[in-house]
Design a protein around this nucleic acid. Structure first.
Lengths: 108, 108
DNA sequence: CTCATTAATAACTCAATGATTATGGGATTA
DNA sequence: TAATCCCATAATCATTGAGTTATTAATGAG
């Protein structure tokens, strides 16, 4: 019983160009392929291919509107990454536990 | 001005074999190259190469003792990863801020 | 209907990478 | 000193992967 989730995420985010695309979607919000291609420094097919990898990893969602496709970041997909770093690092894990308790008390 | 730190980390951790080595060092503590090679499913030179990449990324430390080399995880090196995920995800970032405040109030 | 635009796919090239076997170099042991 | 052991490096090979140009499919505009 392995864990494919972190593997897909790490591989998807290992490429700087792909990570830059994801960062832009995270920080600037939804973008079309054309918008992402402008400023990416690579061709449109290359961008489409990167978006395909990000989508495969669950990191982006696509929305078709007319003849253009809008992509947006699915930031929740980063959760397995956060979990993994937590498991590798008892320090952060402890802090997450504190956070859990804190939030639970907040809800009451 | 880019940020090479996350890039090295993501690339180092993108390979499953390399990540497995790092996980083992994190969870089971310091290991020799021979110990890591046993159970890695690959040859000793391959393990040495992976350890070199991890060391380059700052994820492991090596300690020479006689004719064997002991490797240990440097978990603090994961910090840029945690920071990055936080910056990509306003949700978690906000929660971290809450946590900061929470812990500060605890210390008083 | 025709033409232009947007994005995805196909076919291909080339560099990077993970693995192997062979070898070297330093440290223990007999 | 000679032989052995542990690890790193060298040389090589196959595969992966990121990029390109060319093309296709689908939508919108004239």
């Amino acid at each position: 019983m392995t864990e494919p989730a972190p593997d897909l995420l790490f591989k998807a985010l290992a490429d700087p160009t792909r990570r830059a695309i994801f960062e832009r979607l995270c920080l600037d919000g939804e973008q079309t392929v054309g918008g992402l291609t402008a400023g990416a420094g690579i061709s449109q097919p290359a961008v489409s291919k990167h978006l395909g990898v990000l989508k495969q990893a669950g990191l982006v969602l696509d929305r078709h509107e007319g003849r253009q496709t809008h992509y947006s970041a699915q930031q929740r997909a980063l959760a397995p990454l956060v979990d993994w770093t937590g498991r590798m690092n008892g320090f952060w894990e402890a802090r997450f536990d504190d956070l859990e308790n804190f939030l639970k008390r907040m809800d009451q």
